[in-house]
Simulated assay, not measured.
Amino acid sequence: MKALFIGGTGTISSAITRQLSEQGCELYLLNRGSRSESLPANVNIIQADINDEDKVGQLIQDMTFDVVADFIAFHPAHLERDYRLFAGKTKQFMFISSASAYQKPLSDYRITEGTPLANPYWEYSRNKIACEDYLLKQYRDNGFPITIVRPSHTYDERSIPLGVHGSNGSWQVAKRMLENKPVIIHGDGTSLWTMTHNSDFAKGFIGLMGNVHAIGESVQITSDESLTWNQIYEAIADALGVQLRAVHVSSQFLAACSKQDHRGGLIGDKANTVVFDNSKLKRLVPGFTASVRFDQGIKQTIANILANPALQKEDPEFDVWCDKVIHALDTALASIIE
């Protein structure tokens, strides 16, 4: 199989890249080359900015592919560019959408590919929906061979998956745990969530590549494991070897008092109970099973981060914000008790 990935080094795509290289796929990555030093030796790099359409067009002028996958498309304009570049050059075009595009609030916590798409809380999700709409029109009107893939919360060895964190990533929450500081969990921590290790996602994704039955289809790829947010944070604390000191805070309150887009990320996503039905994926990719349990995967992630100081990016502003939120709750409680 000959495949081209636009991106290929991110949380989701890096595991797919590794697994395909082990399987002997003729794989090309089109990116700016900022992470190319960590790539397998048999992966081919096309170094360019995908937004430089003329240059990319010249570089791929004489090339065709079995599969082209765009991991970094977030707006319909990105897909319009991809269509101009790859129409007639690939047997399958795969777009990475998002499970956050599913309706909020959900009418049924069990999510299938037939769950309506609508998210009034998060612009990111609405843009993904618009991207899907554009591609479906190209499929219907022009036969563009698309497959839409919807991941949910996928994690790797480089970052701890969390509900609430700052703009510098997740390390500051782990640092608070290690310093025996309280950490914020949105809501009461009992809503269900799904974490998927990127190596499991990769297995499902590769099974859809070159799969004639996946053309024109939308497919979600997640683990079947459901966890409460309390269980997720307990597993993280356990991997760090510390006791969890949790402070539960209303998602609405967090969204109202944060400079970050917690309204989109919480109200439009993580505050909702989600349980994914992966029956469609398993029909298309017989034998698919997500095998990395979260408590096992997060131990690998924590061990890697603790061993690599470069991944320990501090966030003093977020740390101060956490203390302010917790102090405000303590003050409000004290005023009521008095």
Rank of each mutant, 00 (worst) to 15 (best):
I96W: 02
S97V: 09
A99E: 11
A99P: 01
S100D: 13
A101F: 02
A101D: 03
Y102W: 09
Y102C: 08
P105W: 08
D108R: 13
R110V: 15
E113P: 10
E113S: 10
E113V: 08
P116Q: 06
P120M: 11
P120D: 10
W122N: 11
E123S: 14
R126L: 01
I129D: 10
C131V: 05
E132K: 10
E132N: 13
D133P: 00
Y134E: 01
L135G: 06
L135C: 12
L136V: 12
Q138S: 05
R140D: 14
N142I: 00
F144S: 07
I146G: 10
T147Q: 04
V149Y: 10
R150P: 07
R150T: 08
S152T: 03
S152P: 01
H153G: 00
H153F: 12
D156R: 02
D156E: 11
E157N: 13
E157Y: 15
S159P: 00
P161L: 11
P161K: 11
L162E: 03
G163S: 06
H165N: 11
S167Q: 06
S167D: 08
N168H: 15
S170R: 00
Q172S: 15
A174T: 03
M177A: 05
K181I: 02
K181F: 02
I184N: 07
I184F: 06
H186W: 06
H186L: 04
D188S: 04
G189R: 02
G189Y: 02
T190I: 09
S191V: 05
L192E: 08
